[in-house]
Simulated assay, not measured.
Amino acid sequence: MGRRARTALMLAPVMALGLAGAASAKNFGSYGTLFPVAEPDFLEEILSRFRAMETDGGLAQMERDMQQRTRDYLARPTAGAILPPATDYRAFEFDPSITLDRDLSDHEGRVFATAGTRINPLDYSGFAKRIVVIDGDAPGQVAFALSEGDELDTLIVIAKGAPLDLSRTHGRRFWFDQQGVIVKRFGVERLPTLITRADPVLLIEEIPVKEEDQP
């Protein structure tokens, strides 16, 4: 038997089944209501909701709420750390030096500092202002900070309070310690704290403010 004959014999049952299925197929019709498959456009859905909010005043109210929250935050930012008042004088030194864990190179690949090198930022910084960290809600601490000097030699940083109100009241800038960065960096535990440059370290002093010192 030739190759073509064998192939024809192998395909014959398959063709027979196909023809039988076609011959016995029936149209059973449609049952129930048919609906086209359609999905709402996601962007159009969002725009539709915004248009509805714009019509009923909801969008304008949302904008006013956002503006008010921004004003509230600027007036009284979220405190990064809530610290107790100093009850006893305490002083300690803080060494800002860092040790490189890898070589540092310039844009041409030339190494200018090798791993293991110890660098003290005070050797390269001319910053000499004292930093007073206070609780801006404590009148005695505010008075203490103001007595430490003017803006030329003293930086007042509040860990908690309303910096804009304090600035308007006292006619000078009060900086806010965003997310408690200064408090955490220098290990401040009680307020008020005075940070002074004392090369090659920084002197950290916790200074208690007595009740009678408060206005």
Rank of each mutant, 00 (worst) to 15 (best):
S48P: 08
I119T: 13
A113M: 05
Q179K: 08
D150Q: 05
V201S: 10
V201C: 05
G21A: 12
E39L: 04
T55S: 12
I131M: 01
A162C: 06
A138T: 08
R172W: 05
A128H: 05
T114D: 09
L59K: 04
A128Y: 01
E54C: 06
R197E: 06
Q61I: 08
L203D: 08
D150R: 07
A5I: 13
R69C: 03
P96Y: 06
Q61W: 06
F94H: 15
P77D: 11
E206A: 00
Q179R: 15
T99R: 02
K129G: 04
H107L: 15
I158F: 09
I134L: 11
D88Y: 14
G109T: 12
R168A: 12
L203Q: 07
T196I: 06
F176K: 14
M15V: 06
F92S: 13
I98K: 07
T70S: 02
G58Q: 04
R118E: 14
T169N: 12
I204E: 08
P96S: 02
L146P: 13
R90D: 12
G180Q: 08
G136T: 13
G80S: 02
E211C: 09
A23H: 12
R172F: 08
I156M: 02
G171S: 10
M66D: 05
T78A: 11
F144G: 02
A52Y: 11
L11E: 07
A81G: 04
D153V: 12
I131V: 11
E93Q: 15
L19V: 07
S48G: 14
T7W: 14
F92M: 13
G140C: 01
E148G: 08
G80Q: 02
G116A: 09
V188S: 05
G149W: 04
R118F: 14
E45D: 08
G116F: 05
G116L: 06
Q141P: 01
L104H: 03
I98N: 10
V142K: 10
A5L: 11
F42E: 13
V183G: 03
G171R: 15
E151G: 01
Q141D: 03
L9E: 15
R197W: 04
R102I: 01
D135F: 12
L17Q: 13
D103V: 00
G32F: 02
L17V: 12
L47Q: 07
V209L: 03
D165Y: 14
G171M: 04
G32R: 00
A79F: 03
A113V: 09
P208Q: 06
R173Y: 08
N120W: 02
A60G: 10
L43R: 05
R71I: 15
H107R: 09
T114P: 10
A91E: 06
A8E: 14
A198S: 15
K129V: 10
L152F: 05
I207M: 06
H170D: 00
A60R: 13
P84W: 02
R168H: 14
E93K: 10
S125F: 00
L152M: 03
A81P: 10
R172Y: 08
D88H: 12
L47Y: 02
V201E: 03
D41W: 00
F92E: 05
S30Q: 13
A91W: 14
E108P: 06
